[in-house]
Write a protein that binds this DNA or RNA. Sequence first.
DNA 1: TTGAAAGCGCTAACAG
DNA 2: CTGTTAGCGCTTTCAA
Lengths: 349, 349
Amino acid sequence: MSTGPRAVTIGDVARAAQVSTTTVSKVINGLPRVAPKTRERVLEVVAELGYQANPTARNLRAGRTDAIGLLVPELDRPYFGQLATRLADALEPTGRHLVVQRSGLSRADELAAASFARLRMYDGVIITVVGLNPPDLEQLNFRTPVVLVGERPLPRTFDHVMMDNVEGAATATAHLLERGSRRIVMLGGRQGTTEQDMPTLRTLGYYKAHARLGVPLDERLVAPIPLLDMASGYAAVRRLADDGVTFDGIVAATDVVAIGALRALGDLGIRVPADVQVVGFDNIDETEFTTPRLTSVDPGNEEIAATVLRFLESRMAAHASGEPEAASEPTAEVTIPARLVVRESTRPA
Amino acid sequence: MSTGPRAVTIGDVARAAQVSTTTVSKVINGLPRVAPKTRERVLEVVAELGYQANPTARNLRAGRTDAIGLLVPELDRPYFGQLATRLADALEPTGRHLVVQRSGLSRADELAAASFARLRMYDGVIITVVGLNPPDLEQLNFRTPVVLVGERPLPRTFDHVMMDNVEGAATATAHLLERGSRRIVMLGGRQGTTEQDMPTLRTLGYYKAHARLGVPLDERLVAPIPLLDMASGYAAVRRLADDGVTFDGIVAATDVVAIGALRALGDLGIRVPADVQVVGFDNIDETEFTTPRLTSVDPGNEEIAATVLRFLESRMAAHASGEPEAASEPTAEVTIPARLVVRESTRPA
DNA sequence: TTGAAAGCGCTAACAG
DNA sequence: CTGTTAGCGCTTTCAA
């Protein structure tokens, strides 16, 4: 198999400029000890031939790529887009850049494995663990510094920044209970599983709040949905209504699900927050622009991004300095506190 | 500078398994001509040492990365997230995967240049040209197959898939005019510039529709905004109202801007579509879930993604086969037809 | 100031 | 079936 039309290499430039590749290398990297005339000639040839260094070769040689990989379950979820933006912004001044890849929520393990293998080529890796099997992660065995960000407790092989799903959801639920809701749907909730995934944890908070406030709970109000997207949120609320389930509050597993729910309530002629109060989770930018504006749990998005990068920088520094003990240094695990942002989809106190 | 704790290499495995690196290579790549016993021994060592091939070295050697790069202006825009998802889905069966990077809308040229240089390491590159200076693109000189996707006519150095901004916006505007609007705001519009950027082109369509239907147009209704985001859309509508500008229709430059506008209209007590009709552009998934649901121009999203990949595959095939004439093959430029999707934010005929 | 040579980790001819 | 060797394109001692 041909590799296609050969690209211009440093050797081509060297030949054309009648110098060694060493000299060309120095010129294109702005290193000293090159005669001005030589530099000039090389630059001319570079321009003429349109030479650009092959980043792969450079990376192999340098042992680093100056790139940080971010693995997200899906590329079209506002939450991850906004997380990626925060990370990219913070990374920019460091001279590194962010590269985003999708792991695929429920794809074959094979695929997940491939995703992981490819991450090896980054200097550091941030993995959002939503929807990944812990087994996949344990297999994940490479020297590259890794920070996990997500919601579920995990084997502590890596630094891990967690959002406080349980308390966040408990706060949200308590808020609805305090504002008078008594039959609250846990939309996108999950129960009866041993898995500690995000829906399960948020559902746990929902239970806790009821217990704390001594409000009885109808298990039929826990409404699982297949995907945490708008369409599923919409469909689930319509179904509840069709089934004649009565409710006066909704805790949505995510803001995106809540947006679907709001649309369904609108179609059903149910007023928010007068008839049904709604609270979301994630505090994505969209919450400010829904009708009505969505009360939501902010999992500490700014702090999550900052903490992830702090951990990563620290691991990378240790890694770069070659500290052998870096690998065995105990992994950090922090839970970022969540905070309720009250907007219009819940009633005033 | 140390490169950090040395990773396990193929050489380490070879040594431990008492074979050559060739044999190890064959084993990990599943190639034939390895004795079962040898294979087994190698695999044991691989597992024991936790060896994983260095993708950078492999890429350098192979001359390809099996990765397609996608350059987007921002990581948190629904439109690009949804485009990325379409592309990633379509790419999956081909054994290649998508890698997303941000160009940064209005960042320094330096940064754009850096982004481009890094794209060299992909087998193919898809660049969304919103907000990129054509000069940047002309400098873009590498052998990697490139397809441009975006809205503005460009020097035809590359294959280019365009959306029909002018006709799309004209259709949207005509729709409002036909449904009775007479004072239509072009929200996020732009005029009086020679640049052929997206806001300008969509504004052009807005003008065209007025001309075609013989409806006079108040230039003060073209409302530029700094950023095409929800907050700017919101602020602009509030400002128009504060300034006492009267209007009975809004053509928003993008759906995201329209979402901000809807929220502002709600706050102002203006009914949609009874008092003011609103139409967006992009047909992002969110349009189905706004209140009211947003009428929008679908620029042909499915077809855009499919066409981009068709072009790219074709370029990549030519490139891989080493056809020298591949480079000089004329570039394709197609405009995908746009189509109006009528929802609830505009009145029935 | 310049260049020769080694080598990053891997794969592919080619011998044996 | 296995190993030796060369080399992907680049950077970096080290010597000249």
